[in-house]
């Protein structure tokens, strides 16, 4: 266990939590996040555009850009680090507009995403890319939510405990 001075936060995010945090802050996240990568984002935004119901209620939620490796028997989840957030930039402003408030990933975001974060008050956390086996230990439960056919790219609900992250940007 790495000793670290971090701010504990519990999901779902509230405007108060978001406004209390600043870029560079180290946080320890506990609560529910949803995994979604490229293919899931494509489907979610298509559903939004067609006015179809989403596989989970996006409002106030946090998405973790991740596609875990398969779980070994007896494990909750396989290694589960972040993927490059920028690949989701094309879809993210629409998701934020629809209620998404938190994102966890790695790497820089586009100006459009940063603009949407400011407009709607969302926040972006970074976790260490490649620290996948370590991050998997924070995942206490993992359940398939939608798009099973996408394999690792399916949407999963993860209950995380003490996931150490850094605030990279916020609205």
């Amino acid at each position: 266990m790495i000793a670290v001075n971090a701010i504990d936060i519990t999901l779902p995010l509230t405007p108060e939590i978001i406004s209390s945090l600043n870029p560079g802050d180290i946080v320890r996240i506990t609560g529910t996040v949803y995994t979604a990568r490229d293919a899931a984002h494509k489907r979610v935004t298509e559903s939004l555009a067609n006015g179809e119901p989403l596989p989970f209620d996006l409002v106030g939620q946090t998405i973790y850009y991740a596609g875990p490796a398969p779980a070994k028997p007896g494990h909750v989840v396989g290694p589960c680090g972040p993927t490059t957030s920028a690949r989701m930039d094309a879809y993210t402003p629409q998701l934020i507009k629809a209620g998404l408030r938190g994102m966890i990933g790695k790497g820089e975001r586009s100006d459009a995403v940063r603009g949407a974060m400011r407009e709607y008050g969302a926040i972006y956390f970074g976790v260490v890319g490649g620290a996948a086996a370590l991050i998997a230990r924070c995942v206490k439960r993992c359940a398939l939510v939608a798009y099973k056919d996408l394999g690792t790219e399916a949407i999963r609900r993860l209950d995380v405990e003490d996931m150490v992250a850094v605030v990279l940007d916020k609205g």
Partner: peptide, 19 residues
């Protein structure tokens, strides 16, 4: 965290990264 991840991967014989 990267160094700790390497220790976990080696001791559990699990992949270092999900990719």
């Amino acid at each position: 965290q990267i160094l700790e991840n390497q220790r976990i991967a080696a001791s559990e014989q699990t992949p270092l990264c999900q990719d």
